[in-house]
């Protein structure tokens, strides 16, 4: 095992000892790190922080429901090749120019060690994580069209994120170092808010955070606001010169926190009905 640089967070990314441990295990053992947690718990941001702290380039792969494992390795642009075949100015016999590496392919081909972020892996098909296992283990693959192998000289730092409560295959889970990011406590949230709004007044910070956690405690919400919504909300409040936020009154710029129509209705319901706040 080679010496490795330890990760201890950055000035703008707050970590906990357990998160640092997990990252360092992944770095030292050269295994992918799987981070799970609710939206807004800083999973995506972690990859950026690791990349910044270690001074490695960050390569992102944002997974969508239609993403296939192959897309991460390379795509062969047959359309372009067909088009080019109509003109004489390009040598269509050279397939190489039509092979485009995907994010995983680029990460393997990189000369220096990089951080590869596979973001929201649970969005793809249930089989998707299993389809990646081989390449993640071996850190190499073959481009069939060229009969060429792409192999990592420096194993990339792989960070994979997934939302909580989605099931992932066992075989995949066993390859990864695992970390579950808890939703921030009010104290940690205060620190996170500080990072984003260093010169925020204490009173507004306190009130906003309190209102935010009260709101999250409402049971009828379909989509509970997350950290990024709180940070945005505070930005809006400050821009508008709001100095006080009170739970009892309707919250200003509520739309920044609650994005769904039903949730706004549910919120109004609970306020006007004089029912208990936490139903």
């Amino acid at each position: 095992m080679s010496e490795f640089a330890r990760f201890t967070g950055t000035t703008t990314y707050l970590t906990s000892p357990s998160l640092e441990s997990a990252v360092n295990c992944a770095l030292a053992l050269e295994r992918p790190l799987l981070v799970r947690g609710e939206p807004g718990t800083g999973k995506t941001l972690l990859a950026e922080a690791v990349s910044a702290a270690l001074d490695h380039e960050l390569i992102r792969w944002n997974v969508k429901s239609t993403t296939r494992a192959q897309d991460g390795l390379y795509v062969y642009d047959t359309v372009q090749r067909l088009y080019d075949s109509r003109f004489q100015d390009k040598n269509v016999g050279d397939i190489r120019q039509y092979i485009k590496l995907g994010p995983m392919g680029e990460a393997f081909a990189a000369k220096k060690r990089v951080v590869l972020l596979i973001d929201e892996i649970d969005k793809a098909d249930v089989e998707f994580p299993n389809d990646l296992l081989n390449e993640l283990d071996r850190m190499r693959f073959t481009i069939d069209e060229l009969q060429e192998e792409v192999a990592a000289t420096q194993r990339p730092v792989v960070i994979i994120t997934s939302n909580a409560e989605k099931e992932l295959p066992d075989a995949f889970l066993r390859r990864c170092v695992f970390h579950f990011i808890d939703f921030p406590t009010p104290e940690l949230m205060a620190d996170i808010v500080r990072v984003h709004h260093p010169d925020l007044e204490d009173r507004l910070a306190e009130q906003a955070i309190e209102a935010f956690f009260e709101l999250r405690a409402m049971k009828r919400l379909r989509k509970r606001p997350s950290t990024s919504e709180l940070v945005d909300w505070i930005a809006v409040l400050r821009a508008a010169g709001v100095a006080d936020v009170k739970l009892e009154a309707a919250l200003p710029f509520l739309g920044t926190l609650l994005k769904k129509e039903q949730d706004l209705v549910a919120f109004a319901d609970q306020l006007s009905g004089g029912k208990r706040w936490r139903s």
């Binding site: 357990s18 441990s21 295990c25 992932l168 889970l173 990864c176 170092v177 695992f178």
Partner: peptide
Amino acid sequence: LHEQSLDGFYHVARALLVHR
């Protein structure tokens, strides 16, 4: 990696032994 402490051991073991 556990930096010779039980706390460290706790975090390292958890990251490596638990998968969900």
